[in-house]
Computed example of a mutant assay.
Amino acid sequence: MPGSNLGSSATTTRILVKVTCMTILLSTSVAISLVGSLDSWTVPTSNWSFVILCFCFVLTFIILIIESLALQYCFSFSWGDFLLCHACYLALFCLFVSIIYPTTYVQFLFYSPSWDHAIAATVFCFISTMAYATEAIWILGWPQTGDFTGYIGSLPFLLKMLETLVACVILPFISNPSLYMDHPLLVSCVAVHSICFFLGIVTILLNLADCENRLPISSSVFHLVLSLLSVLLYIGALVLWPLYQFDQKFGGQPERLRDVSCQHRLTNYLCIWDQRLAVAILTAINLLIYVADLVYWARQVSVGTEDQPGDS
């Protein structure tokens, strides 16, 4: 009886996940159509919003096919962890679009059919956010049948998810080449964000695939080295970016009013100075998250060392 109840509950949850996926596909497809119909291809944040929505649609469509054909049993990694990771990440991505898209694009539009389309796109994007959040809640209530490894929901995963999420928020702003192409050190700052984001994604995938035990060093030391490298890179970016963007001695623009792009309020995008400031603030925020990650893994390595038997 308990086993049948467990199986019935798992089946119900999978059905609910499929229904949520179809709701997400509908809402994201409408949002993609609305965003794509607007003449906003010169606005970096609008382009990134379009890309994120397309990514959400494609990945959710693939997951729906896998669930419908019961192909998840063909994978060696934890499917439950992957589904929960997918729902959490894409909920945050859609929430990011729901906030960034209206604040960096919609607010600069006059009331017109384009304004109505942009507002509707924001609404459907928020619906996708709620659907992904609901899916994550349902998956968290999934009966413990071996679908989870315990990594999702742990502090290391939450920190890594925050790091990569903040990096995703930074990417639309640094997609404007005019922010950094005048100086190679600013280009290196962009490289830092890209490298750390890539390392974060690889780390999550290694954990989901349970491949960390195959590394030549212990898992704690591996994470400690990556965290230390990321902290050092971010410290460099946090110093160089404001120095060359806002210090007049290094060709920066210290005052917002002197930026020509900020003098025309009716432009339909954030001015260059605001984008530079956004990158600086987000870099500082991500550095704090990386420091917390570093402290966590330093403690793990320290505890692991103390637990080792002493030399005779």
Rank of each mutant, 00 (worst) to 15 (best):
V221S: 09
L6D: 08
I99C: 02
F198Q: 12
T283G: 02
L95S: 06
D147M: 11
A31V: 04
A209E: 07
L205P: 00
W142C: 01
L238Y: 10
I62M: 12
E135R: 06
I137V: 13
S112K: 04
L25Y: 00
T11Y: 15
E212A: 14
N47Q: 13
L282F: 09
F198H: 08
T45A: 08
W79S: 05
F197M: 09
A10R: 06
P216Q: 05
T20D: 01
I235H: 00
L206D: 01
A91E: 00
S194L: 12
Q248N: 15
F61R: 00
I170P: 03
Y269A: 10
W273E: 04
G251P: 03
Q300D: 11
T283N: 09
C74N: 11
D116A: 15
Y101K: 01
V51I: 15
F75H: 08
S218M: 00
L229E: 05
V225M: 11
H264L: 13
A91D: 05
S178W: 12
V260F: 12
I289S: 07
S49L: 00
Y244A: 03
A91T: 00
L233F: 10
V260G: 05
S78P: 08
V190A: 01
A91N: 01
D247Y: 15
L69Q: 14
Q248Y: 13
V190G: 02
Y296D: 01
L243H: 04
A136F: 05
R299L: 14
D311S: 14
F82Q: 03
L282N: 04
E163A: 09
L69N: 11
L171M: 12
